[in-house]
Design a protein around this nucleic acid. Structure first.
Length: 263
DNA sequence: AGCATCGCTCGTCATTATGT
DNA sequence: ACATAATGACGAGCGATGCT
């Protein structure tokens, strides 16, 4: 079968897209890519294209939806059946029975327009290390633990302070992005600490740069998090639709069965 | 109008993850 | 091992809303 499999992430039945997927635009080299988006299947015959919305997960059966009628079916991965009969599990917008095979090779990638989705971002059970949900639960910070214990502000004792040949001390201070900072200081004749001007300037500049970078990183991080949450919400919507459709279909099949039985 | 509460955003810190 | 990026936690500020 040489039907083309095209992706169209901007149109479809419900308009539900997968924002999370866009985070993995580099997935073009990754096998077993997860796609949660609108997939446009262009049929080789005179039949027009059929738009289906898919929730395809690796190592699982596919669940496909069409645009015209939200109906669902589970098929072996890589196969799509398009049927025109009303009682069928999959409906095309129009046309006749079609069976499509979507590139069965194991390394096949079905990518969307910037909407492809890597294993690590969409199918999470495979790689728990990068599982965002798991990352949401983190052990409390040391500061919080100390606060819980009722501890006061802890002074940084220069236990690891080193004195250089120039008379400067180097002190690792906890705090700040990147696991703290290195602060250089000197001592005067009275043993009091002071930071020489140029060094202070340099440290201030470095700190400001670090804060700026972290500020931007935080913004980006929040944006991604929002995207991820939106993705989950969209997925819930799709799955709810599929569930509803399956329940309806089960109902009608039962009725059909009862009818035939009584005849 | 003044106050309390809530939800949201943002910057910063602390820590972990990742790249070199 | 070290540097940098990513991200959870926390607190401050601010506007919206409801109550008195």
């Amino acid at each position: 079968m040489d039907g083309m499999v095209e992706e169209n992430g901007t149109s479809g039945a419900s308009g539900v897209t997968d924002p999370l997927a866009s985070a993995a635009s580099s997935a073009s080299t990754t096998p077993h890519v997860v796609v949660t988006s609108i997939v446009q299947l262009t049929l080789p015959t005179q039949a027009p294209s059929a738009q289906v919305q898919s929730v395809i997960q690796p190592n699982q059966q596919s669940v496909i939806q069409t645009a015209s009628n939200i109906q669902s079916v589970q098929l072996p991965k890589g196969n799509v059946i398009l049927v025109s009969k009303p009682s069928s599990v999959i409906h095309t917008t129009q046309g006749t029975l079609q069976t499509l095979q979507i590139k069965p090779e194991p390394n096949t990638l079905v990518s969307t327009q910037g909407q492809s989705c890597s294993d690590e971002s969409c199918s999470d059970d495979e790689n728990p290390k990068r599982n965002y949900r798991e990352m949401l639960t983190r052990r409390p910070s040391y500061r919080k633990i100390l606060n819980d214990l009722g501890g006061a502000e802890i002074a940084v004792i220069p236990a690891g302070a080193l004195q250089t040949e120039s008379g400067l001390h180097t002190l690792a201070v906890s705090g700040g992005t990147g696991g703290g900072a290195i602060v250089q200081y000197a001592t005067n004749q009275d043993g009091q600490f002071y930071v020489p001007g140029p060094i202070l300037e340099d440290q201030t500049r470095k700190r400001e740069l670090r804060l700026l970078k972290n500020r931007e990183a935080a913004r980006e991080c929040r944006r991604k998090k929002k995207e991820y949450i939106k993705c989950l919400e969209n997925r819930v919507a799709v799955l709810e639709n599929q569930n509803k459709a399956l329940i309806e279909e089960l109902k009608s099949l039962k009725e059909l069965y009862c009818q035939q039985k009584t005849e």
